[in-house]
Amino acid sequence: MLQAGVQFGKVAVLMGGKSAEREVSLMSGQGVLTALRARAVDAHAFDPAEQSMDELKRQGFARCFIALHGRYGEDGTVQGALELLGIPYTGAGVMASSMAIDKVMTKRVWLAEGLPTPRYALLHRGHYTRNEVRTIPDELGLPLIVKPVREGSSLGVTKVMGYSQMQDAVAAAAELDADILCEQFIAGDEVTCPVLGEGVSARALPVIHIVAPEGNYDFQNKYYTDDTEYRVPCDLPPGEEAAIQALVLKAYRVLGCRGWGRLDVMIDAATRLPYLLEINTSPGMTSHSLVPMAAKAAGIDYETLCLQLLAGASLDYAPAVEPRA
């Protein structure tokens, strides 16, 4: 069992921030803060939207637990600031964070490595015509998904059922991001699989099968209702869970992630082939969140999970240890 307390020093739980996911981040951060304090960690809430990052150094924080979601927290910006301050932090480093939050960049890396992900088209706000938008279903088929490239929690996501919905769907995504992802819809089972660790030592937690009302796993059904069913242990056919775990581990590793992450996957109902959707490098830690759920199924309670993640806090550019004379 991990020992808590003094060896961690003074710990900042970064929560809130300036992204569209601020409210979810506050819920995640409060859960982490309570868990760490319950294990005798000297943990304190720190909101980068309300205090300068310089205050972390001035106030003597020894490490940070990042419970920020979305931009200005999960995209490499906060990670870069912490690298400059020399304060170890949880989760992916600067490059992995900046790649992983960008759904298109993530797809490009996965495709380059031969990993399956749905076909897509990319639009740039202010640089597309109505006709270009109208004809995207000709390329990707219907239904299809439209979403901002750099948002999470299903914000700005639309399932487009017909040509007449395309313009409004693209406009909704463009309100949140300058880049809009139009993605092939994979009909089938929606699953998610968290990963803990780094490199060859990384391991996949149990797969969760998500069964949302009418197949709509949106912001409301993620955080504010109890109508979504989470099947863990999952009810997939024999061998599929292990195959998905192997796939997400490779997807996690090729992006250079560390600490933890959660990868979302669709399984084609007709072929049973899995398709990687995206990766979250600072997953939710709310009462409805999936990483704690999968960890619990693996025998890791919420407090222990938080301690393990904190123990793994590190820097991309850690000072070299001078050899002893």
Score class of each variant (00 low, 15 high):
residue 125 R to T: 13
residue 104 V to E: 15
residue 17 G to R: 03
residue 11 V to E: 07
residue 207 V to H: 11
residue 301 D to G: 07
residue 1 M to P: 09
residue 165 Q to P: 10
residue 171 A to K: 04
residue 94 V to N: 06
residue 72 Y to N: 15
residue 25 S to D: 09
residue 51 Q to M: 12
residue 203 R to M: 15
residue 47 D to A: 13
residue 164 S to T: 05
residue 211 V to K: 10
residue 251 A to H: 02
residue 209 H to K: 08
residue 138 D to F: 07
residue 30 Q to Y: 12
residue 138 D to Q: 09
residue 11 V to S: 09
residue 259 G to T: 02
residue 140 L to R: 00
residue 104 V to N: 14
residue 181 L to Y: 06
residue 19 S to K: 00
residue 57 K to H: 09
residue 325 A to T: 07
residue 22 R to D: 15
residue 56 L to Q: 03
residue 89 Y to R: 02
residue 234 C to R: 04
residue 134 R to C: 15
residue 244 I to P: 08
residue 305 L to K: 00
residue 186 I to M: 00
residue 199 G to P: 11
residue 12 A to N: 07
residue 315 L to A: 10
residue 323 P to L: 15
residue 162 G to K: 06
residue 98 S to W: 06
residue 56 L to G: 03
residue 204 A to K: 05
residue 16 G to V: 08
residue 63 R to Q: 03
residue 157 V to F: 12
residue 284 G to H: 01
residue 196 L to A: 02
residue 265 V to M: 08
residue 96 A to P: 09
residue 285 M to W: 03
residue 237 P to W: 11
residue 219 F to W: 06
residue 173 A to N: 09
residue 199 G to S: 14
residue 221 N to C: 06
residue 106 T to S: 09
residue 267 I to R: 07
residue 265 V to L: 10
residue 61 F to I: 00
residue 169 A to Q: 08
residue 250 K to Y: 14
residue 213 P to K: 01
residue 103 K to Q: 05
residue 144 L to G: 00
residue 107 K to A: 13
residue 63 R to F: 01
residue 131 N to E: 15
residue 323 P to Q: 14
residue 127 H to V: 06
residue 246 A to I: 02
residue 306 C to G: 03
residue 157 V to P: 14
residue 41 V to T: 04
residue 80 G to Q: 03
residue 123 L to N: 07
residue 164 S to G: 14
residue 128 Y to S: 13
residue 289 S to Y: 03
residue 249 L to F: 12
residue 125 R to C: 15
residue 136 I to F: 08
residue 307 L to G: 02
residue 221 N to A: 06
residue 44 H to Q: 13
residue 85 L to C: 05
residue 133 V to F: 14
residue 61 F to V: 01
residue 271 T to Q: 14
residue 174 A to C: 13
residue 94 V to R: 05
residue 152 G to P: 06
residue 27 M to P: 00
residue 115 L to S: 04
residue 222 K to I: 00
residue 50 E to A: 12
residue 44 H to T: 06
residue 4 A to D: 09
residue 244 I to C: 07
residue 210 I to A: 04
residue 205 L to Y: 05
residue 169 A to I: 03
residue 147 K to W: 10
residue 272 R to G: 12
residue 51 Q to K: 06
residue 129 T to P: 07
residue 36 L to P: 01
residue 18 K to A: 15
residue 181 L to C: 10
residue 211 V to A: 11
residue 108 R to P: 00
residue 62 A to I: 03
residue 153 S to F: 11
residue 269 A to M: 12
residue 160 V to F: 05
residue 268 D to V: 02
residue 149 V to F: 10
residue 110 W to V: 04
residue 229 E to T: 04
residue 17 G to S: 11
residue 6 V to Q: 14
residue 235 D to G: 12
residue 71 R to V: 12
residue 302 Y to R: 02
residue 225 T to C: 01
residue 104 V to W: 13
residue 306 C to H: 00
residue 303 E to H: 07
residue 288 H to P: 10
residue 217 Y to Q: 03
residue 320 A to F: 11
residue 170 V to I: 09
residue 137 P to T: 01
residue 266 M to A: 02
residue 59 Q to L: 14
residue 184 Q to V: 01
residue 155 L to C: 11
residue 164 S to K: 07
residue 241 E to S: 11
residue 6 V to R: 09
residue 191 V to H: 08
residue 28 S to T: 04
residue 169 A to M: 11
residue 43 A to S: 12
residue 151 E to N: 10
residue 234 C to H: 10
residue 100 A to C: 14
residue 211 V to F: 06
residue 15 M to G: 12
residue 316 D to H: 00
residue 189 D to F: 07
residue 172 A to C: 13
residue 68 L to R: 00
residue 260 W to E: 06
residue 278 E to T: 03
residue 200 V to I: 08
